[in-house]
């Protein structure tokens, strides 16, 4: 991102340099490549700004005084923490604190169930040879593409009839419908790349296949399982459609709480407080994603499923 071409850029240029003997052509090619390097740098800056500016705007607005909500200075002129206090206050009927706990609880349940069940299926799909494997894989991939609206009406009626409306299980069960296929798919692709020779070695040393799985493979697979857990958790944490219909004030997750965030006046949107709530919900997630960036990208592109 600096104006001076770095050693990396220089070596790339040298590598890509064509082997024309003509000096004029050489300098022309050189100029063209310098231009290309510049275009890359400018594009990179544009992409970074496009991705980060809206997020930055949310964080900055969350520190602005309510009276200066719409100012357009890059930093708040009247810095305040009040919006965070407002965001957590239950005076106006908002339950952000409770909603955070709800989302954590629902996300944890969905992730644990999906991984417990999904790990076994993924192992079989990645490792074992059996008929209908392609069909099972296709079914699971199809399930992950399934539209949430197709589930919501019957579940709405079912949960109303059995008195489950607004309960945690009414929110956990539908989330499994997309978290489980995602987990199976991502795990299957991770498992395919693991060093399975070690399993063979364990088998030769007298382990059964089940023992080899438990003692050798599970510890080896821990990073893959962990990445998948993050993806499953994020997909559950981000869910809105089904939760917005099936949750109550007491069990609503953060996405629903933020979407319905009430201000002091009925028709006045409490922008700064909503931005504060958004920042609270997003920043831990962003940090988590950045820490495990490489693995998450690998999992995302392997599963090819949107969280």
């Amino acid at each position: 991102m600096t104006t001076v071409a770095g050693p990396a850029a220089a070596s790339a240029e040298a590598k890509a340099k064509s082997q024309t003997s003509n000096a004029a052509a050489k300098s022309k090619a050189h100029r063209r490549e310098r231009g290309a390097a510049w275009r890359t740098r400018i594009s990179a800056i544009v992409i970074v700004l496009w991705c980060l500016l809206p997020f930055y705007w949310m964080v900055v607005t969350s520190f602005r005084d309510v009276g200066y909500t719409f100012e357009t200075t890059p930093l708040p002129t009247h810095f305040t923490w009040d919006n965070y206090i407002t965001a957590f206050s239950t005076r106006l009927g908002n339950h952000l604190g409770q909603a955070l706990l709800n989302s954590l609880f629902i996300g944890a349940c969905v992730t644990i169930i999906s991984l417990l069940v999904g790990t076994f299926a993924a192992y079989a799909l990645a490792r074992l040879d059996f008929r209908f494997k392609g069909i099972v894989l296709g079914l699971i991939l199809g399930a992950s593409m399934f539209p949430g609206v197709a589930l919501i009406t019957p579940l709405f009626q079912l949960f109303t009839n059995i008195g489950w409306m607004g309960t945690y299980q009414a929110l956990i069960i539908p989330s499994i419908s997309f978290a489980l296929p995602l987990s199976v798919y991502v795990l299957t692709s991770f498992f395919r790349e693991m060093p399975w020779d070690l399993e063979e070695a364990a088998r030769i040393d007298g382990c059964t296949q089940a023992e080899a799985f438990r003692k050798i493979i599970l510890p080896l697979a821990a990073p893959a399982v962990f990445t998948t857990a993050i993806l499953a958790f994020i997909s559950s944490w981000n869910e809105y459609l089904i939760s917005s219909q099936l949750s109550s004030d007491a069990t609503q997750p953060v996405t629903v709480a933020i979407a319905a965030f009430a201000g002091s006046q009925p028709h006045q949107e409490p922008y700064t407080a909503v931005m504060a709530a958004g920042t609270i919900v997003t920043v831990p997630l962003v940090i988590l994603v950045l820490i495990f960036q490489r693995r998450i990208v690998a999992g995302l592109t392997a599963g090819g499923v949107k969280g």
Binding site: M1, T2, G6, A8, A9, A12, A37, T40, R41, A44, I47, V48, C51, L52, P54, F55, W57, M58, T61, I234, W237, N238, Y240, V254, T255, V256, I258, A259, F261, E269, Y271, V274, M275, G278, V281, T282, L285, V286, L288, V289, L290, Q293, I296, V297, G307
Partner: peptide, 28 residues
């Protein structure tokens, strides 16, 4: 190019933000 890691990190930020929060952010 230098700063490629930054681009790759920045690109994950919109993806990580819940859609409901994205909607509220753009609403503002």
């Amino acid at each position: 190019f230098r700063g490629r890691a930054l681009v790759r990190a920045a690109i994950l930020v919109p993806w990580a933000i819940p859609t409901a929060v994205t909607a509220k952010l753009w609403f503002f």
